[in-house]
Amino acid sequence: MTQPHDVAVHVRDLHKHYGTKRAVDGLDLTVERGEVFAVLGPNGAGKTTTIEILEGFRERDSGEVSVLGVDPQQAARLWRSRIGVVLQSADDQAELTVAELVHHFCRYYPGSRDADEVIAAVGLTDKAATRTRQLSGGQRRRLDVALGIVGRPELLFLDEPTTGFDPEARRSFWGLIEGLRDDGTTILLTTHYMEEAEHLADRCAIVRDGRVVALDSPAALGDRAARQAVVRWIEDGVPRERTTPTPTAVVADLAARHAPGEVPGLEIVRPTLEDVYLSLTGAVPVHTVALEALIPTHDDQTETVR
């Protein structure tokens, strides 16, 4: 299956079943070269199975898959040298130092990066002589990335790269990923952190029940919900709210009715990417703000009393 040069990953009608369990059920996906692409979805949605198929670690039941122009199921050693894989957790080679491990991995790849430059790039120069078992969680993730990029991969798979990070470590790690993108590396990322997807990803795919249910840039996915807002206030001691695409007009009307005083409990809420994600993955009730905004089924000017 030949794909355009600007396509790094192409998946069409992918299926993988385990008995009666449809882990991946007709999934379609295209990742362009040079972008950071985030795959989002709850546990059991089919993310891990899909990524393992793309990495060549698991065979599919049916469907078309092309990664860097090659079917991973038929890929040879040369293809494997073109990808980098960073698993969600790793604790192997605990007695080797950072320098020993990175230099060792360098020998696996033709045209690998300079080991010391890679160690510096991930911010571990001062830990080069430290055994891997003595590294903090954030430092170990940096080492994992070093091992993933030492072979100059065209495509890097990152599986939940910042799980367990504190906020400072997570943002530092984001800077590393942005640097890799600037160098031209295509990155396919899975994460449960919506803020991470918003910050890093050029596009996001939301997966549910083995299928992609939404695919767009984080901003565009958010805009789908932001077309409507919820205006909340208190009137006669009763909480009220109105879902509307014109919150300014609603607020102006409320202000006129309550003049010259303030509108009690006034609040305007616009759904976030996380709201969109929760709605599309079925993690929140159907009456929530995000789902109303994505799938309007009521008059957008209907006022409700809670």
Rank of each mutant, 00 (worst) to 15 (best):
A45T: 11
G44P: 00
Q3E: 08
A259P: 01
R211G: 05
V118F: 09
G210L: 08
I206E: 13
I83Q: 03
I53E: 01
H287V: 12
A229W: 05
V67T: 06
T248F: 06
A90H: 11
G261D: 08
P285R: 13
L254I: 10
V251L: 05
V85A: 00
A76V: 10
I53C: 05
G175L: 12
I83Y: 01
E178F: 15
D202C: 00
A90D: 14
T50P: 00
G137A: 02
K47G: 00
L147N: 08
R141G: 08
Q139H: 06
L200G: 02
W233M: 15
R257Q: 15
S62Q: 10
Q74L: 05
L266Y: 04
E64R: 02
G151Y: 07
E100V: 07
R181Q: 11
D91M: 13
N43Q: 08
H258F: 15
R211V: 04
V11W: 10
P110Y: 12
L254M: 12
G184I: 11
R171V: 04
E55T: 00
D61H: 09
H298F: 05
V238Y: 03
V212G: 09
D6I: 08
G222I: 03
S112M: 04
A76R: 11
W233I: 14
A252D: 13
Q134K: 15
V70C: 10
I206P: 05
R60M: 00
E262G: 02
D223L: 12
Q134P: 02
I187C: 07
N43M: 12
G261F: 04
L278G: 07
V118D: 12
P153N: 14
C106A: 15
E59G: 14
R170E: 01
V98W: 01
A226G: 11
T302E: 14
L158A: 06
P264G: 14
G151N: 11
T272Q: 14
E32F: 02
D209C: 10
G84R: 04
L27F: 12
L189K: 02
V230E: 03
G63P: 01
D114V: 11
V11D: 07
A256V: 06
P153D: 06
D223G: 10
V289T: 15
F37R: 07
H258E: 06
I234W: 04
F105Y: 15
D236M: 03
E178I: 09
A293N: 07
R131E: 15
V207A: 01
R141N: 09
G41I: 02
L221S: 14
T186P: 11
I83A: 05
G111V: 05
R242I: 13
L54V: 01
T248V: 15
G56R: 03
R82L: 05
I206F: 09
R170Q: 01
A76S: 06
A129H: 04
G179M: 12
L14A: 06
